[in-house]
């Protein structure tokens, strides 16, 4: 083997080795990139899946909120209408004639007088002249309070108190009349 041939052989061997190194490097890098892409896709896929759920949840939350607010608004409107019915009734009583008011006061007394021992009937001073044998007081409301003389038993039949009690007991019937 001549010197030139030897030199050429050494160079060729080196080039072949370098080619092998380059090829292996490219393969390693390609494999690495593939792994990186897979990992990146897995991470982004997780974010997208969770994000999709979050987006759907955001939609449902907004809709649920308006549905709840809507139901609340409807309920408030119904309560307002019921209050209006009570207010109209109260107004019609307060605007009724003196004789009608007297009849009403007497009914309120007669209804519960027997339930109270030694009863005294308390009426607002404004309405006291309408009811015989009543005690005038500053009730600030139409109606009567029937109280035993010792103060142990007391039935509050003032208009506001009766209305507040009726709002509870009559609510199903009133709702049925107004809203069905």
């Amino acid at each position: 083997m001549g010197l030139d041939e030897l030199e050429s052989r050494i160079k060729k061997d080196a080039e072949e080795k370098i080619q092998v190194i380059d090829k292996e490097t490219e393969e390693k890098i390609a494999k690495l990139r593939d792994e990186i892409n897979q990992e990146a896709k897995a991470e982004s896929g997780k974010i997208l899946r969770e994000g999709e759920q979050e987006a759907k949840l955001a939609y449902r939350r907004i809709i649920a909120d308006i549905v709840i607010k809507g139901k609340d608004k409807i309920e408030k409107e119904k309560n307002t209408i019921i209050d209006e019915a009570f207010n109209k009734t109260r107004d019609s009583i307060l605007k009724s004639s003196e004789s009608d008011k007297t009849r009403f006061l007497n009914k309120l007394v007669d209804k519960d007088k027997n339930k109270v021992p030694n009863p005294k009937v308390i009426v607002d001073k404004k309405y006291a002249p309408l009811l015989k044998n009543s005690v005038a007081a500053d009730l600030g409301d139409f109606g009567v309070i029937i109280e035993s003389k010792d103060g142990k038993v007391r039935i509050d039949n003032t208009l506001n108190s009766k209305i507040e009690r009726l709002k509870v007991t009559l609510k199903p019937q009133i709702s049925s009349l107004l809203f069905k």
Binding site: K162, L170, L177
Partner: peptide, 15 residues
């Protein structure tokens, strides 16, 4: 239903 409701409340107040 307002008229009937007022009648019902009136009845309730008298009872």
């Amino acid at each position: 239903g307002m008229e009937k409701t007022i009648q019902l409340i009136n009845k309730g107040l008298m009872e």
